[in-house]
C-alpha cells in the first residue's frame, strides 16, 4: 500500500503543499489542495482507490498519475 515515505515532511501552503524528502533532499510541489488531501488519506486507507474516493471519477486519472510521479521520485513508497 502506497504511503508517504517516513523521511518526507509535508508543509501546507496556500497553493497546495511543499514536500521535502530529508534523505534525497528533494523538494516537490503539490499544486492542488485536493492532492494534498489524497496524499494524507493514503495513510490509513486500504487502497489508492479508497484514498481517491472523494475525487470526481473524471479527474482520478490525473490524480493517479500525480501519485505515480511522487512514487517514482521516492516521496511515496
Amino acid at each position: 500500500m502506497l504511503a508517504l515515505h517516513p523521511q518526507v515532511s509535508v508543509r501546507p501552503e496556500p497553493f497546495g503543499a511543499l514536500l521535502y524528502h530529508f534523505g534525497t533532499r528533494r523538494l516537490s510541489f503539490l499544486k492542488d489542495r485536493r492532492l494534498l488531501d489524497v496524499v494524507r488519506r493514503l495513510d490509513g486507507a486500504t487502497s489508492v482507490d479508497e484514498a481517491l474516493s472523494d475525487v470526481p471519477a473524471g479527474e482520478r486519472a490525473a490524480f493517479r498519475s500525480a501519485l505515480a510521479t511522487l512514487e517514482k521520485t521516492g516521496m511515496l513508497q
Partner: peptide
C-alpha cells in the same frame, strides 16, 4: 495559475 505565480505572492515560510 502557474506555480511561480504562487511563489511570487509569497509562501507561509521561505524555501531558501
Amino acid at each position: 495559475m502557474k506555480l511561480v505565480e504562487h511563489f511570487a505572492t509569497g509562501l507561509d515560510a521561505p524555501i531558501c
